[in-house]
Design a binder for these strands. Structure first.
Length: 552
RNA sequence: GUCCUCGUAGCUCAGUCGGAUAGAGCGACCGCCUCCUAAGCGGUAGGCCGUGGGUUCGAUUCCCGCCGAGGACACCA
């Protein structure tokens, strides 16, 4: 029995009692079943009686008593008692609780997956770094978290596409090309260009790719440098992200948006909806109709499209491609975009609370020996994704970046992170998985086929077995809330708690027969429990894009 | 100036759709390996949950003010 099953049981019980006339019920309550912090309060507790007290006009304890009496007779429930101001503390019988191990093992890789977001077609856009330099640590947070969000949404039943928007148009690209070209000729990089050391490598790569490039006429050469360097740089970004385990379904080029006529189509769409107007020779979008601070220019007085026009067209295009929810994951420096992007959705005739979502990630601050390292691509002071992975590995990097909510700024000390590698929580969690794998390997070596043996779940009645089962039962709820709130860090935190529960179980409950001991029911039952835990670790780590090692 | 996010243990941070004794990791200290992985387990020390009000049976959680930190406010890209 999972907490959701229990909540459903309580819920039907409430309506049954109301139908019988025990009390008046205006609206069905949102029944919440929780794991109490203290085990003395049972396996589960619910505060329905407290929540319903006002509505029914009954004292909470009296209401709770009525519910508890009936609840105790439900199959699988060992006891139900009223406690405190009106909580109902429920204990499950151990067979019901232990049976969860079988449920988990049989569900396999799908254990924890749900249907709360079934039917939603979601576009998750993240990173979208300019193709003018390497992926750095600022992007890396989203590389890890954005990917995890996509995974979690999919686990909740949504159809998800990961998208990377390539800003391959505009002044920055020209400056980029000019910088690479200058370096290739051994000339100083222009003041407004890119000064990073990586430009030198890029120049070399461009020359290797197209040796004759320096002999082209100046203006042609500039364009050629821009294009070749762009291709090389984008290729590197793609390679590094693949190495990091973040794969995109769509690499969407800004140029293609213009070339395909999507910009005009976007404008048409906005015109149809009637929020476009002309003023001072420019074309504007009245975003203030929907909560933006000021109206925005789409086409400047000189006839050029603004960047905002492109953003707008891009959103309209996403919707036209069939996505009913566009999620944007942006850095804190793009904070001002939130209201205007939402307004864009509304101006396009969409529901800005349902079709668009803009998540802002606070920047990652890096310190080295206690001193802040400033990140600036132009100045060339970069900690890249590649550097990070080289130093701490993909798993530690991904895990460290996904275990914190993105709306709080994160400070990572590079030295600390490297030094603390062995103490990193990721190893604590992975170790639990490897430990289980080892136990089950040993079982196989002993010739034990636990899956074929009789499994009596009622034998799992040790306090730490009970606790571990309780933790396992939480997994589907954790996944669902991580998806609903777009907060994959909840999965990481959960896995850490689960690891504690497992290690404590392992410490107190010997799994395999020792020495010449006969194989008994308790051994089999514990192997089922181990297998269920292993599956949960594997599924949880997978949601974070972190590997679940068989050995460590 | 306006708006947004945040203030929880020495450090880095969880938790909170209002609930029963506020958590983890790191750091400090003390214990536990003649049999399944000690990257583990058990224990000790460490908190006016920034601050002042309000709502409530009940506030670290919700509302308002204040203080502090970070960020955003272009016919830029």
């Amino acid at each position: 029995m999972t907490p959701d099953d229990l909540a459903a049981a309580v819920s039907t019980l409430v309506s049954t009692l109301a139908d019988e006339g025990a009390f008046r019920l205006d609206s069905a309550p949102d029944v919440r079943v929780e794991r109490p912090k203290s085990r003395e309060h049972g396996d589960y507790a619910t505060n329905v009686a407290l929540a319903l007290a006002k509505q029914t006009g009954m004292p909470p304890r009296e209401l709770a008593g009525m519910l508890a009496q009936r609840l105790a007779t439900v199959e699988g429930i060992a006891s139900a008692e009223v406690a405190g101001p009106g909580f109902i503390n429920v204990r499950l019988d151990s067979a019901t609780q232990g049976g969860l191990a079988r449920t988990v093992v049989e569900a396999g890789p799908l254990w924890g997956h749900g249907t709360s977001l079934a039917g939603r077609v979601v576009n998750v856009e993240f990173i979208s770094a300019n193709p003018t330099g390497p992926i750095h640590l600022g992007h890396t947070r989203w590389a890890a978290v954005g990917d995890a969000i996509a995974r979690v949404l999919a686990a909740a039943g949504a159809t998800v596409a990961r998208e990377f928007y390539i800003n391959d148009r505009g002044v920055q690209m020209d400056r980029f090309g000019a910088s690479v070209m200058a370096v290739a000729h051994g000339r100083p990089v222009p003041e407004d260009g890119y000064h990073g050391a990586y430009v030198v490598d890029l120049a070399a790569a461009v020359l290797a790719e197209q040796p004759g490039i320096v002999d082209l006429p100046e203006d042609e050469q500039l364009a050629a440098f821009r294009e070749v360097a762009y291709a090389v740089q984008l290729g590197q970004q793609q390679q590094v992200l693949a190495l990091f385990g973040t794969r995109f379904d769509v690499w969407y080029s800004e140029r293609s948006l213009h070339e395909s006529g999507a910009v005009e189509r976007g404008l048409d769409r906005l015109r149809e909806q009637g929020h476009v107007f002309e003023q001072d020779g420019a074309l504007w979008l009245r975003t203030t109709d929907f909560g933006d601070d000021k109206d925005r220019v789409l086409i400047k007085a000189d006839g050029d499209y603004t960047y905002f026009a492109t953003d707008t067209a891009y959103y309209v295009d996403k919707r036209a491609r069939g996505f009913d929810l566009a999620i944007y994951l942006l850095g804190a420096d793009h904070h001002g975009y939130v209201n205007r992007l939402r307004a864009v959705a509304a101006c396009a005739g969409d529901d800005m609370d349902d079709n668009i979502e803009v998540l802002i990630g606070q920047l990652v601050k890096i310190t080295k020996a206690g001193e802040e390292v400033k990140l600036s691509k132009r100045a060339g002071n970069i900690v890249t994704l590649e550097d990070l992975v080289d130093e701490v590995g993909v798993d530690a990097a991904r895990y460290t970046l996904t275990r914190y909510p993105v709306d709080s700024p994160l400070t990572l000390d590079v030295a600390e992170m490297i030094r603390a590698t062995n103490d990193n929580p990721v190893f604590y969690v992975q170790y639990a998985h490897a430990r289980i794998a080892s136990v089950l390997r040993n079982a196989a070596e002993l010739g034990i086929d636990w899956q074929a043996a009789d499994f009596d779940p009622a034998l799992l009645d040790h306090e730490r077995e009970n606790n571990l089962l309780g933790m396992l039962a939480e997994f589907p709820r954790v996944v669902a809330s991580a998806a609903e709130l777009r907060e994959p860090h909840r999965v990481a935190r959960y896995l850490e708690d689960l690891a504690t529960a497992y290690h404590r179980f392992y410490d107190a409950c010997w799994v395999l027969p020792r020495g010449d001991e006969e194989l008994a029911g308790i051994h089999v039952a514990r192997m089922w429990l181990c297998a269920a835990a292993r599956q949960t670790f594997a599924n949880g780590l997978d949601l974070l894009g972190v590997s679940a090692p068989e050995r460590m």
